[in-house]
């Protein structure tokens, strides 16, 4: 089977994730979309690993997983805290990140 197809799939998933981040307001959904983007890149990395015949890409994918896990922990904690204080999980409501 042609490995390029996996790349197309990865690109598709990445785009889906990106548009989700841009278009959805719910922080949880945005968060899931970020995860989707990360996994899309993982897929791409593994595919590259297969194509080039070495393990670099797979190692990279493991790193990404670890980072994603850490992100989930911190990110969910932030979202829960924001939800508790503002009773809303919409990202547009938290627009104070400016001077």
């Amino acid at each position: 089977m042609n490995p390029e197809n996996y790349l197309f799939l990865a690109a598709l998933l990445f785009t889906l994730g990106a548009s989700g981040v841009l278009l959805r307001r719910n922080a949880i959904v945005v968060f899931m979309c970020v995860e989707l983007m990360l996994n899309a890149s993982n897929l791409a990395l593994v595919t590259f690993s297969r194509m080039h015949g070495n393990l670099d890409g797979q190692i990279m994918a493991f790193f990404v997983m670890v980072v994603a896990a850490a992100e989930v922990v911190v990110g969910l904690a932030v979202i829960v805290t924001v939800y508790r204080s503002r009773h809303s999980a919409s990202v547009d409501d938290a627009s104070l990140m400016k001077l």
């Binding site: 990106a18 841009l22 990202v91 627009s95 400016k98």
Partner: peptide, 17 residues
């Protein structure tokens, strides 16, 4: 220029992408 920094995470994301 400061107006661009509007505080909406999604608008920052657009500029990143």
């Amino acid at each position: 220029l400061r107006r661009v920094q509007n505080g909406f995470a999604r608008s920052y994301a657009v500029s990143m992408f």
